[in-house]
Design a protein around this nucleic acid. Structure first.
Lengths: 190, 190
DNA sequence: CACATACTAGATTGATCGCTCTAGCGAGTA
DNA sequence: TACTCGCTAGAGCGATCAATCTAGTATGTG
C-alpha cells in the first residue's frame, strides 16, 4: 500500500516526464495521484518547486537502477550498451513515444528559471555519470576515459530521445546505440 | 526595420528556446517583441499554437544556416564537426547557459500534447538531417551512412546541450564533439 | 472626398494557475 | 473521557492564462 506522499511524488514524476514542469498543474497532480489537495502542501510546504525537485531526484534514482539491471547480467560492455539503447527504444515505442528520459524535459525548461530544480537535475546527471563510469572502469578502461565515455553515452541517449519523440521513430535510438557501442568497442581495444 | 509580425516571431523563438513553450505567456511575448497585443491575434488567428509552430520553423531554419557556415569553409569534415561543437559550447557559455538548441525544449514538452507543434519540430529535424547528410555524402561517405552519422551527430549535440545546461558546464559538448569527430574520422577511413 | 483594408490598442472574458486558509477527521496518549 | 497531532478536505484567494471583443488609427484606392 503506497502512502499519499509517495503517490504524489510518483504522479508528479510521470506528468513531468511526459509534459514537462510548467505544463503540469498541481491540481492535475493530486487528481492523478488520487490524493487530497491539502496533502500536497502538507507534505511539500515549499510548493510545486519542492515537489518538482523531489520528483526529479526520485525518478532519477529509479532510472539509475537500469544501469546495474542491464550492465551486470550482460556478457560484455559493448553488448550492455546495445541493450541499454534497445531497451530505451522498446519502452518508448510501447508507451506511444511518451516515456523518454524522466528528467530531460524538466532539465531543459527549468535550467534558467529555478536554481533549486536545476541543481536537482544536475545531481541526478552526476549520479548517472558516476554509476556509468564505474561500470566502464570495471571493464578495464581508465577512469578519466570511463567518465568521458559515460558522458558521451548519456548525451547520445538524451539527444536520441529528443529526436525520437519528435520524429516518432526509434531510428535515432538505434543509430545512437550503434554509434556508442562502436565507440566503447574502440576504447576497449585502444 | 523589422515588421511587427517578425518581431513577434523572433521574440517567441527566443523565449521558447530559453524557457519552453508552456512557461512562456502570450503577454510576455508581445511585451518582449514591443508589439501591440491585438497584433498577435491579427497575424496569428490560430493563437499561441500557430505562433509556436511558426517560431519553431523559423528558428530551425536559422539554426540550419550554421551547417554551411561552418562546414563549407572548414578544411575537412572532421575539423568541421569539431568546430560545430566548439562553437555551440562557446555560444552557450557566452549566453550564461541560456541559448542551447532553439527547438529541443519545445520538442520534448509538446511532442505528446500538440500534433501541430510536434510536426513542426519533426520537419526541422528532418531538414537538419538532410542538410548534414549531404555534407557528409560530399566528403565521400555513402548516403545511408551519411544519414546515420548526421543523426548520431545531432543526437550527440542535443543530448550534450541537455547535460551542459543542467550541469552548467561545456564539458559534455567537448566530449560529444570529440566522440563524433572520431566517429566521422573512422567512417572516412573505413 | 468617401470608403475599404490593414493594423493597433487594450479592456474584458471565463478558465485556470499556485497557494492559503479554516474546519474537521481519526488514531494515539494521558 | 479529553486532548494532541498528523493528515484530509476543499472552498476560496489574487494573479495570470489564452483568447475575444469593440473601437480606434493609418494608409491606400477610387
Amino acid at each position: 500500500m503506497s502512502t499519499t506522499r509517495d503517490r504524489i511524488v510518483d504522479a508528479s514524476a510521470e506528468l513531468f516526464r511526459r509534459q514537462g514542469y510548467a505544463a503540469t498543474g498541481v491540481k492535475q497532480i493530486v487528481t492523478e495521484a488520487q490524493a487530497p489537495f491539502g496533502s500536497l502542501y502538507h507534505f511539500f510546504p515549499g510548493g510545486k518547486e519542492q515537489l518538482g525537485a523531489e520528483a526529479i531526484r526520485t525518478s532519477g534514482a529509479l532510472y539509475e537502477l537500469l544501469i546495474p539491471a542491464i550492465f551486470d547480467p550482460a556478457p560484455d560492455l559493448v553488448t550492455a550498451v546495445r541493450m541499454f539503447f534497445a531497451g530505451a527504444a522498446t519502452h518508448l515505442e510501447e508507451t506511444d513515444y511518451e516515456d523518454a528520459c524522466p528528467i530531460a524535459t524538466v532539465a531543459l525548461e527549468v535550467s534558467s528559471r529555478s536554481e533549486t530544480m536545476r541543481e536537482a537535475c544536475a545531481d541526478v546527471f552526476e549520479s548517472w555519470i558516476a554509476a556509468g563510469a564505474s561500470r566502464h572502469a570495471e571493464a578495464g578502461i581508465g577512469e578519466a576515459r570511463a567518465r568521458e565515455l559515460t558522458i558521451a553515452m548519456i548525451a547520445a541517449l538524451e539527444g536520441a530521445f529528443v529526436l525520437a519523440r519528435a520524429l516518432r521513430s526509434t531510428e535515432p535510438l538505434q543509430i545512437a546505440g550503434e554509434t556508442m557501442a562502436a565507440t566503447v568497442e574502440r576504447a576497449l581495444e585502444g
